[in-house]
Design a protein around this nucleic acid. Sequence first.
RNA 1: GGCCCCGUCGUCUAGCGGCCCAGGACGCCGCCCUCUCAAGGCGGUAGCGCGAGUUCAAAUCUCGUCGGGGCUACCA
Length: 476
Amino acid sequence: MTTSLADDSSPVRVRFAPSPTGMFHVGSARSSLFNWAFAKQRGGAFVLRIEDTDASRNRPEWTEGIVSAMAWLGMDASGYEGPLLQSGNTVKHADAAQQLLAKGHAYYCSCTREEIIARTGDQHRGYDGHCRDLGLGPGPGRALRFRTPDEGATVVSDVIRGEVRFDNAAIDDFPVMRADGSVLFLLANVVDDIDMAISHVVRGEEHLPNTPKQQMMWQALDHEPPVWAHLPLLVNEKRQKLSKRRDKVALEDYKAEGYLAEAMRNYLMLLGWAPSGDREILPWPTLIEEFRLDEVNLSPAFFDVKKLRAINGSYIRELAVEEFIARSEPWLTAPVAPWRPEAFSVQAYAQLAPLVQTRVAVMSEITANVDFLFLDEPDFDEASWAKTMTGGAAGVAAGIIDATLHSLGTVAWDADSIRACVEQAGAEFGLKLGKAQAPVRVAVTGRTTGLPLFESLQVLGRDAAISRLEAARARI
RNA sequence: GGCCCCGUCGUCUAGCGGCCCAGGACGCCGCCCUCUCAAGGCGGUAGCGCGAGUUCAAAUCUCGUCGGGGCUACCA
């Protein structure tokens, strides 16, 4: 938008400043990725700062969660400064508060919330400036408030949104330091950004209403405000901001489901920004190179898992088979895999892996595709069994299985020969392969759908195939 | 309530006054391929919220309107 702000030559130092709340949110992930792409593409620096000022809801291990989630997405600790803890900077926070006081930009206030509401008669009116000119000193129950101008306007120059104007009269004197001397987020955030020499503050749009206040403080502290960039929100299907409470937002959950980091990263980059031309799936270095902060969209983006799935499937299919096999490991072993660990065979899996690869959109789906190979008994799907083995289908199913069994014992054990057996069995009942294979498939794999049957049988082995067909035949 | 932001297919987006009776992708539907299911190929469905204005010309500019959202703590 405002090209002077997006000037390619200005030095870049960005920060990602999450508060450690226990899980890494997809919105945070997107925000960190945008910051990262912008910094790397401009040859700038990226700082990770943990906003742990609210001691009541902080745990040290949450920080580790943020670091590892970022690493998973490809933002390795070697590529950024930090993590720095906001709580480690409290001396400077307090110092800044005193500076504001000394310069007349802040004053002590003894009002309680109740008193303010009682005076204004309106919960929504905000602070009425009661203590503004009382010249109060520090003391119990006295917080420090920033004195905002009564007239004029504060204009926030945002790379994405252009100039956003806020009338100063509408901005109440806001607290910057609690009565206990601890500094509030709004100020601490500014002090840290100044301290870290942050050049661009790239964050979610929910912070836009706070920005004029922060900009006032930058200036009151004798610093040029940074370049602001407020990213559009990530929303749910009801177009509300993604929230921990009602939406599935934990990056960890998606990882556990088998979303590939590179797919998640690519998808997230597409929320609010798009590469030029009709391209969507691009390697990370290309995304970084082509990303432009000032091209970021204005409107909120729906976090669409369907599209994420599609992109993930595409990434899975792009994997070299060996790579796919290697990456399948977590879904083939405990605690995910339902079979006895000894029953698993990498060789057997490797033979079918190429067939699995085109059939899964998320890695967790691998398990159900090959479980028949390693389970002692197939995991029968009731609907599948009912459809192919009971009622009117029972007679044919029994016949097909009998006929297949008849020739399967002596046939050469390869997919083509096995196929011929089933084809022949079907012919005896006037059935095409499509119909004839169904009871065999269910008997052996437990389901009507799955990997190509004959390759599956070949890998399963003759003995297991025969005993499963016999067991199923007995159950019909 | 106040302040602020946003508004192109269902969704993510391309579009920066003529190249657009709007392009791509996901989804959905159909066809082909096919041992099931996928993958793949081909085709289709569907959109500029509305109203004024500016202009020879508007999805693109302006205003209004309607709709959606965010913020509104001695939380971050």
